[in-house]
Simulated scan of single mutants.
Amino acid sequence: MGGNHTQPKFILLGITDTPWEQAPLFGLFLLIYIVTLAGNIGLIVLVWVAPSLHTPMYFFLTHFSLADVCYSTIISPKMLTDLLFGNKTISWAGCVTQFHLFALFVTAECHLLAAMAYDRLVAVCHPLSYVMVMSPRACWQLVAWSYLVASLSALVYTGSTFGGSFCGPRHIDHFFCDASPVLRLVCSDTRGSEVAIFALATANGLGTSMVILLSYGRILHTVLGMPSAPSKARAFHTCASHLVSVSVFYGTLFFMYLQPASRHGSRDKVASVFYTVVSPMLNPFIYSLRNKEVKVALGKCRRRMLNLCRHQRGAANGIRESWNVLGWKGP
């Protein structure tokens, strides 16, 4: 990466440079980030403590929520700091690290969504062999594959984006270090980098989306062949949450990355806000509001917590009464 040491910092232009817009946006994005952390971490904890959710689908969902937390945390704190203090500089190493980790977790989510689609395929089309096919070993292998492919892809994305020569102003017209705005600052020929990024994004995005489409094509064929309406309704309900997540995630992702860097514009910021900030917040609600199993597990956990509080309150009252009998002063 020759020539990158003379000016080791970039300046992120951010979402807006209008002062009166920054405070409301800071409050909005801070609220969204807090909800994102609470929702995704809460869903992970719920799956961990509720035995009824110890199934392959929720196993994949915990990793999906973890990826949401990670790449939202890679983007949101820096964006919030920039909106609050106006110091929009980011070091070379910080920019490279931010983009690399972001690319890693976004790519991992693509493959996790494909794994979840395969899980739904086996559950609906091969229910008798579901336990054997989706064994704990198989689930861990699918998750490991997702992170392995994502790690290798992130290396290629990062090398292609930051491997050129930078000169002149280093103002990134974005609120985080993304491929297309960074490539606009490269003085050398970027056609090779653009081709590499486009090809790999196509392989990851279209490859995983084809797995999802083929899985749901087979699921639809199986469901339409079911004799009873209740069976069809159960099958569709089983897949509904995943389909909503897929639509939200891939819609903005394809808009952003399956086009050449020269065709990117100001609309990218809006799309980027949606899939980096809003989408991670929506996923826990999509799965909790659409899934009866999550609602039941959440109700059980709530009752367990209430019973524990009542038990502790009763124990405290018993200790206080014992103190009164013995003539001691309680706290």
Rank of each mutant, 00 (worst) to 15 (best):
S52K: 10
L214E: 06
C309Q: 12
A117D: 12
A229E: 14
A261Q: 13
S272A: 15
S241A: 09
T73F: 10
A93G: 14
V106D: 10
L142F: 08
R191C: 03
S228N: 01
R234C: 09
Y71Q: 03
F59G: 15
A93E: 14
F285M: 05
S188C: 11
E293V: 02
L66S: 05
R290K: 02
A315G: 03
Y216G: 03
H221A: 09
S72C: 10
M134L: 11
A315V: 09
M1E: 03
V106Y: 04
F176N: 07
P331E: 12
S193K: 02
A271F: 12
P181W: 03
V96P: 04
N204R: 02
K9F: 13
P127W: 10
M281T: 07
F249A: 04
W328C: 08
G192K: 05
C239G: 05
S272V: 00
F249C: 09
E194W: 13
S193N: 01
S188R: 01
G327N: 03
F85K: 06
A229C: 04
S91L: 04
A38T: 07
V133T: 14
T222I: 06
H311K: 08
L258S: 05
S209I: 06
L200Y: 06
T62A: 13
Q7G: 10
F162D: 10
M1C: 05
V106F: 03
Y58K: 04
L289G: 04
V325T: 12
F26D: 07
S231K: 11
S288V: 01
A235D: 10
V182H: 02
G314H: 12
F166E: 07
T107V: 11
W20I: 10
G3A: 00
V244N: 10
H264T: 11
F249S: 00
S151V: 10
A240G: 04
K329S: 15
N4R: 11
A144C: 11
F175C: 05
V273L: 15
S129H: 02
A240D: 01
T16P: 11
K88H: 12
V248W: 08
T36V: 01
A103T: 13
I74L: 15
G318V: 00
P127D: 01
I219T: 03
C125Q: 15
M281H: 00
T81I: 13
T161R: 08
F64E: 03
M305C: 14
A199V: 11
I75V: 14
S52Q: 11
S262M: 02
L214A: 09
Q312T: 04
C177K: 00
V133H: 08
S231N: 06
I75L: 08
L83V: 08
A23M: 05
T6L: 11
T238N: 14
M132H: 13
I319M: 09
F176W: 13
A50S: 15
Q312L: 15
P230K: 01
S188M: 01
T89F: 15
C139F: 02
L258C: 04
W145V: 04
C177V: 02
T202C: 14
L128V: 06
K300T: 14
L213R: 09
A108G: 02
T222D: 07
M57I: 09
T36L: 01
C110N: 14
S52T: 06
A201Q: 15
T62G: 10
H54W: 13
G86C: 06
P280H: 06
W48I: 05
R234N: 04
P181E: 00
A38M: 03
K88T: 12
L155P: 10
L80V: 06
F285Q: 01
H5I: 07
H111D: 03
